[in-house]
Design a protein around this nucleic acid. Structure first.
Length: 214
DNA sequence: CTCCCGATAT
DNA sequence: ATATCAGGAG
């Protein structure tokens, strides 16, 4: 048994178990991914995909979103929750992209984060999945799973992102992000983690603590 | 820290 | 009934 680190074991095991882990938001263009990600706050990507399937068929460019207008946009995304803020931000971001970026999504995390409603996580998702730039977005799943496994201890997504970036080589950041999300959804659920079927329970901090103290 | 917020699973 | 869902802004 070679003496490899827990982080390396976790990456290898998850990649072997979940080779198909990928971005589950459906998109055809960087702009579509940006909008889908902005819509994904506090709701499942499955429901985002249902809404964007209809939305993008009518408007999938900044100019198209602007043409819809606020009320129409709110109506179309209402079922996703937080719809007022989301619609306002998407409209304002579309206006900026149209006015200042020629309608194209910038391939830069800092530029993306200047858009209203776009924070660290959304910017990371866009550059990673649309432009192939290594990034490690920390969403609710990554945050929870990283803590449970013992990969990170920071109390903010930003701290966890930093810890994970230091623990894993750059070329693994994007893949690790998808692997941890996949594990979080299918196995390491927030309410009822299915440790019996977890491929990395053997090195999981939470699992070890749970079986140590019944 | 609170607020935004509907849909779904538990 | 309540926690949770690919968060961000004030």
């Amino acid at each position: 048994m070679t003496n490899i680190s827990n982080s390396e074991f976790i990456f290898e095991a998850l990649q072997k178990e979940f080779p198909g882990a990928h971005c589950e938001l459906e998109f055809q263009t960087p702009f579509e991914l940006l909008i889908a990600t902005m819509l994904s706050a506090q709701c499942t990507d499955e429901r985002v995909n249902q809404v964007t399937a209809v939305l993008f068929s009518e408007a999938n460019t900044p100019e198209g979103i602007i043409a819809l207008g606020l009320k129409e946009l709110e109506n179309k995304i209402h079922s996703l929750g937080l719809y007022h803020n989301k619609a306002k931000n998407i409209l304002a971001a579309s206006q900026i992209l149209s006015d200042e970026y020629g309608g194209k999504v910038p391939e830069d995390i800092e530029l993306l984060r200047r858009l209203p409603g776009v924070g660290r996580k959304t910017a990371n998702v866009v550059v990673s999945n649309a432009f192939g730039i290594p990034a490690l977005a920390v969403d609710t799943h990554v945050f929870r799973v990283a803590h449970r496994l013992g990969l990170a201890a920071g109390n903010t997504p930003e701290k966890v992102e930093q810890e994970l970036m230091e623990a894993f080589p750059r070329e693994r950041w994007s893949t690790l992000h998808h692997l941890l999300i996949f594990l979080g959804r299918r196995i390491c659920a927030a309410r009822k983690p299915n440790c019996a079927e977890c491929p990395v329970a053997a090195v999981c901090k939470m699992f070890q603590e749970d079986i140590a103290e019944p």
